[in-house]
């Protein structure tokens, strides 16, 4: 059975006039790395909130359909119970810092402390997580005296360290430098390989194509198209609906009109583009 099951999910915030999510049915296998793309306002963050239980438990509003993770329904769990299985990194990393801690190390240890993980194990897990995201050298710094990208790394690390079975990341690389971005995709890929299920909202199409198993394109609260990265990310539907595409795809589409791209399939990664333009 699938690890995450959404059945006919529909939702509206207390103050919204219409449905923000509609007709969402979806199954995600354990260890799968799924990426969600979509224009601003499509409902990506709201879907993240639904997976993490904040919709409806925190935001209230009207929900119908089901969100199930590992056979349990979010409607039948409390937010605290849900959080043991599901971790969410918020879109705006600047709001995620707890405000309760003086150093980056303590900030990242905060969640583990709350669930009573023994001191030695805690220390090891925090150190491992910090080295994964490349922030070991920030351990003793104040969480408030960091650059934008450093804050985002701290926010991400404080979720990773919890080792949730379902990891939900809402634009986790928005403030990161290009190499850092690619590294985060790599880390997430590795987590998925080790069995963690990952849902990641992203705009960076080139890296989605290189690392994710599946892409779901959301528009106006509904699933527009889903499937293998190279199929979804090169589809005409995306362009018609105002989605961003990679420069490789865009250049090859133009080149095709001028007879300079002869393959049937359009590229979305550098390797595909090199191969196609060489032939």
């Amino acid at each position: 059975m699938a690890f995450v099951i959404l059945k006919d999910l529909a939702y509206q915030y207390p103050s919204s006039t219409g449905l923000v999510l509609e007709n969402i049915s979806l199954q995600i296998q354990e260890g799968e790395f799924v990426s969600i793309i979509g224009p601003n306002g499509a409902g990506k963050s709201t879907l993240c909130y639904a997976l993490a239980g904040f919709v409806p438990h925190f935001f209230k509003g009207e929900i119908s359909g089901e969100v199930e993770v590992d056979g349990r329904k979010s409607s039948e769990s409390t937010l605290d119970e849900w959080a043991l299985n599901v971790g969410l990194a918020f879109q705006n990393p600047f709001n995620q810092i707890s405000g309760a801690k003086y150093t980056v190390f303590e900030e990242i240890a905060f969640g583990l402390e709350n669930i009573g993980v023994p001191r030695d194990e805690m220390k090891k897990r925090v150190e491992d997580a910090m080295s994964l995201t490349g922030i070991s050298d920030l351990a003793d710094r104040s969480p408030y005296s960091l650059s934008g990208g450093q804050q985002q790394r701290v926010a991400l690390t404080s979720i990773l360290v919890m080792r949730p079975r379902l990891l939900v990341l809402d634009e986790p690389t928005s403030q990161m430098d290009p190499v850092g971005t690619r590294e985060v995709f790599g880390v997430v890929r590795k987590m998925a390989e080790e069995g963690m299920t990952v849902v990641m909202v992203e705009h960076k199409v080139e890296w989605i194509a290189n690392f994710a198993d599946r892409v779901i394109a959301l528009k106006d609260g509904q699933i527009l198209i889903e499937g293998k990265p190279n199929e979804v990310l090169t589809s005409d539907l995306l362009i018609e609906n105002g989605f961003g595409i990679s420069r490789y795809t865009s250049a090859a589409r133009e080149a095709r009109k001028r007879g300079l791209w002869k393959k049937e399939k359009l590229p979305v990664t550098l390797d595909e583009a090199v191969e196609g333009f060489k032939s």
């Binding site: 290009p178 190499v179 690619r182 420069r247 090199v274």
Partner: peptide, 18 residues
């Protein structure tokens, strides 16, 4: 650029590879 963790743009990289 790599020294400061920046990668050239997609088309710059593609042009180079070609």
């Amino acid at each position: 650029l790599a020294q400061t963790y920046v990668e050239p743009p997609q088309l710059t990289r593609l042009g180079k590879r070609l």
